[in-house]
């Protein structure tokens, strides 16, 4: 637990509860953190529930690809327990592939993935990893379009020791719109509702690590904001989060740390603010304009 406070600025007050870095007295007094998060997007004063037991995620020398084509050329990345880490970079740089490897959905050709200092390949595939607390929300719509909302939630119960009523309660409390459509076939929901349904999986089974792949894709800004509010809350609860996001500002607002991935390599790692400035150049700047 103490790693958490040292690594990412989460700190334990004398009352035994955990507080967000921005509330740390040192920050207020002007004493800089080792890796200060300039604008932590965590709602102030949120209490970290100790039972979350956040885990660190570490990628060591990861190489991976499709067929004979290598996409990741040796990635080293450490996501400390309880931190929110944003991966930025141009399309096709390998960010999604990186998340796939981290979530056990793809076997690296070299290197290893460590969750809470345990090598994950000993867990088996993505299913075993999911049950061990690594929750992947994939790119696109991570739902089963031919099943109803409720049936999707039923499948989400595979992830942890929870029962359907409990999952329904949590999901509908968080996303009331889903509650109104529990018997509707998921494929006929709007894009935002589909993403909420996908996201509901992060709410069940007490995941320790959350891997989010462009959850904003194709969604209206209001819905994106709503989803990121949940991300902020999950972060505040102490879940370790590694996210890929095309919207720099959105990502930076919630992240405590960030990196740019270009051509399958981590080009730079740093505080979200620094990285954001650089990533924006990659996206919109343009030398010829």
């Amino acid at each position: 637990m103490s790693e958490v406070s040292q690594g990412e600025g989460w700190w334990q007050a004398s009352d035994g509860k955990w507080y967000a870095p921005s509330l740390h007295p040192d920050v207020a007094s002007g004493e800089p953190e080792p890796e200060p998060a300039p604008e932590p997007g965590v709602p102030a004063g949120v209490v970290v529930s100790p039972e979350r037991n956040p885990a660190s995620l570490e990628l060591v020398g990861i190489r991976a690809g499709y067929g004979r084509i290598e996409v990741l050329h040796g990635i080293d990345l450490t996501v400390p327990a309880g931190s929110v880490f944003a991966l930025l970079g141009p399309n096709g740089a390998g960010k999604s592939t990186l998340l796939k490897v981290a979530g056990g959905r793809m076997r690296p050709t070299a290197g290893k993935v460590l969750v809470a200092d345990h090598e994950t390949h000993r867990h088996g595939g993505a299913d075993a990893l999911a049950r061990a607390g690594v929750c992947s929300i994939p790119e696109g719509r991570g739902i089963f379009p031919n099943l109803t909302v409720r049936e999707n939630l039923l499948i989400w119960t595979y992830q942890g020791k929870v029962r359907l009523p409990e999952v329904e309660e949590r999901a509908y409390a968080r996303f009331p719109k889903l509650g109104q459509r529990r018997k509707q076939v998921a494929g006929t929901l709007s894009g935002g509702e589909q993403q909420m349904l996908a996201f509901a999986r992060a709410l069940v089974g007490n995941p320790r690590v959350l891997l989010l792949d462009e959850i904003s894709m194709g969604l209206a800004p209001l819905i994106v904001a709503e989803l990121y509010e949940v991300v902020g809350q999950l972060a505040a609860e102490g879940i370790t989060i590694l996210l890929v996001e095309q919207f720099i500002q959105t990502a930076v607002a919630v992240a405590t740390r960030a990196a740019i991935v270009v051509h399958g390599r981590v080009e730079r790692e740093g505080s979200p603010a620094e990285i954001a400035a650089e990533a924006a150049e990659h996206y919109l700047a343009g030398s010829g304009g």
């Binding site: 800004p221 990121y228 919207f247 500002q249 990502a251 919109l284």
Partner: peptide
């Protein structure tokens, strides 16, 4: 291209609206 780059709606769409 210049107009598009300067267009606030485009920046919002591309960079996300969360501030």
């Amino acid at each position: 291209p210049e107009e598009i780059r300067a267009n606030p709606a485009v920046q919002a769409a591309y960079l996300g609206s969360a501030q």
